[in-house]
């Protein structure tokens, strides 16, 4: 049953200016924009709020790393190597070069979050634009864009990332570029699908009938409606990006030592797996917690955005 009613009964307003008999009986209805109503729904979702707070804490810790971290993450110590969890002065222990684990994990969040967010952002802008163009343009432009994207699609994402990073060499910038290239086709496809769906709706035809140019229609009527699905998909990609970036670093194709990066830390610490198992697991736990929190928040936002009306 499709409930389309919004008007609650009350007294009929004695407004003779209204020529017809559309009686609005609840003038007090609260008008919310789309994003406002999404936020309103999220307000009640304790799970999403909780995990969102964890994400926020991780982000704040990474930004404020110099203020929070007890030690310089690069400062080595020959005597203080591989100290276990709970060591005096180094509550989370030290790594194989005697650097403070807590400080390195906090600083590592900066790089890991950057590697998680930057490629997704780039892919969203580039892929989103290509997708909207592909979705709205004619058959030729659509085919050109989408078939090119399909070529990238043919490779498994991790393999593609490894191949591009391998070809361009290691380093953070190259890592970001390779991950952006990996995500762009998927982003493009999502934007294209959303655009193609919106394109044939009546209100787009009505806009065309009122004499609007294609660019005006895209700006006013398409972008706003494509943004939702694109945003949902992008937020789910963040955790994938963090994991892939960590994987690249782990393989030595991403961030180079001595930078504190969670994936790289996992790689270098694995030699001391039998000496300090808990210490070795810490970067892994950090990656796990961050990516799962991003995923759960993304799920919650998706739920809040799905509801129409």
């Amino acid at each position: 049953m499709n409930e389309r009613v919004v008007v609650a009964p009350g007294a009929i307003p004695a407004d003779s200016e209204i020529a017809d008999n559309e009686v609005d009986l609840a003038p007090a209805i609260k008008v919310r924009g789309y994003w406002q109503s999404v936020l309103h729904r999220l307000r009640y979702d304790w799970m999403t709020i909780g995990f969102g707070l964890v994400v926020l804490a991780i982000v704040i810790a990474a930004i404020a790393a110099p203020l929070i971290a007890p030690f310089d993450p690069y400062q080595q110590s020959i005597v203080g190597r591989l100290k276990p969890f709970g060591w005096r002065g180094h509550p989370w222990g030290t790594d194989e070069l005697g650097r403070d684990m807590m400080s390195r994990l906090i600083y590592g969040g900066r790089i890991s979050l950057l590697m998680g967010l930057a490629p997704v952002l780039i892919a969203t802008v580039v892929g989103g634009m290509l997708g909207v163009i592909g979705g709205f343009a004619g058959r030729v432009a659509n085919t050109a864009i989408m078939r090119t994207m399909d070529v990238f699609y043919a490779f498994p994402s991790i393999l593609l990332a490894v191949a591009i990073s391998g070809a361009m060499g290691g380093g953070m910038i190259n890592g970001i570029i390779s991950l952006s290239l990996v995500f762009t086709p998927a982003m493009c496809r999502v934007a294209e699908t959303a655009t193609a769906q919106v394109k044939n709706l009546d209100y787009i035809e009505a806009a065309r009938a009122s004499g609007a140019s294609t660019l005006t229609i895209i700006r006013h009527h398409v972008l706003g409606n494509v943004l939702g699905p694109v945003f949902i998909y992008a937020s789910s990609l963040v955790s994938v990006s963090i994991l892939l970036a960590s994987g690249l670093s782990f393989l030595g194709l991403g961030v180079q030592p001595p930078e504190p990066d969670w994936g790289l830390m996992l790689s270098t610490l694995r030699q001391s797996l039998y000496v300090d198992p808990l210490g070795c697991a810490l970067p892994g736990i950090a990656i796990f917690v961050t990516s799962i929190c991003f995923n759960l928040v993304s799920d919650g936002v998706r739920g809040a955005m799905d509801v129409r009306g």
């Binding site: 409930e3 009613v5 919004v6 008007v7 609650a8 009964p9 009350g10 009929i12 009686v23 609840a26």
Partner: peptide, 22 residues
């Protein structure tokens, strides 16, 4: 001869007869 107004909001039904407002 149309009935004025719209059906009531099922989230906030009126106390008396639901059709009374129209």
């Amino acid at each position: 001869a149309a009935i004025p107004g719209s059906p009531p909001d099922l989230r906030r039904l009126p106390g008396g007869c639901s059709f009374a407002p129209r």
